[in-house]
Computed example of a mutant assay.
Amino acid sequence: MAGTKFAYVKIFELPDPLLPGTYILVRLDGHGFHRLSQDHDFVKPNDERALQLMDHGARDVMNEFKDIMLAFGESDEYSFLFRKSTALYNRRQAKILTTVVSLFTSSYVFNWPRYFHSLSLKYPPSFDGRIVLYPSAKEVRDYFAWRQADTHINNLYNTTFWALVQQGGQTTTEAHSTLRGTVSKQKHEVLFSRFGINYNDIAERYRKGSVLVREKLTAADASGITERMPVEDDDPEGGAGGTKEVQSEKKNKKPKIHAQVQLYHCDIIEQAFWDARPYLLE
């Protein structure tokens, strides 16, 4: 269209650069997933297939965008943290947001049969998204602490709610009424005294969510996980492995660092997680 009389329409395209020197956080949420989970008979309170599919979509996004250092997922939600210095798409807000959301959505649809097998999608699922900028590492850490605390609160409620319905014979209205105004301790008591469920024994995936981390691994750590480093044969004739000088040079060579996306179900509120990975917020 350049060079034609119609090119003037480009002046209506407004620039939308994100503030430099800030952390970019992209959060996406399933749109209308309450209905989608009902229409596709998701297991309550947690459907392992659906959660694994969400993790798969998040991993595809992280594999595509190397500047994403950390992602956290719960239920039908995922949050992605870009490194502070990223210049992806010149930090254009619309470009970053739409590409992340569309890639995640397409991965979700594409990989649905892998996790749900013969259960076909009845209609296309969709996700909405937003970008939030955080000025410092403190706000970033507090954000992820907030999301993990939300995971615990929601899962404790849902676990107790569905125990009352599925095992206690209550209607959904009665279960909501039973839990109205209760605190965490009371929900634990309902689970244990009425159904013999110790909430702390429930899988960490459900209690703590999914944490995808771009880990830094040495070649030795990455063995069997990342692609192996090529090994040069210093003695093609099948000798003892080359001269002493070559062996010494190999010994003093710094290990090559690999980056590998790893999935955990762990605590990201406490200091230990961040102390072990200071590079996430560098």
Rank of each mutant, 00 (worst) to 15 (best):
P135N: 09
Y108S: 05
V213T: 09
A219D: 15
F116W: 12
L18G: 11
Q260G: 07
G239Y: 09
I24N: 02
A219H: 07
F144P: 00
I131H: 06
S120P: 08
M1C: 11
E74A: 09
T160N: 09
P45R: 14
Q93N: 12
G224C: 03
Y143N: 01
S248H: 13
V213Q: 06
F12T: 11
W162M: 09
S75C: 05
F42S: 06
A145S: 11
Q186E: 13
A87H: 11
I268A: 04
V100C: 03
G224K: 06
K66V: 05
N111P: 00
A219K: 05
L121R: 09
A272Q: 13
A203D: 15
I24G: 04
R49N: 11
S126V: 03
R205M: 15
E139Q: 06
R49S: 06
G168Q: 02
V9R: 14
I11N: 15
V43N: 11
T98K: 05
F6K: 13
V109K: 06
S102E: 03
V211C: 08
Y89L: 10
T151W: 11
F273A: 03
P124T: 08
V183D: 15
T178K: 13
H152W: 15
Y264T: 02
Q93D: 09
L53F: 13
P255Y: 00
E282N: 13
E227D: 13
Y8V: 14
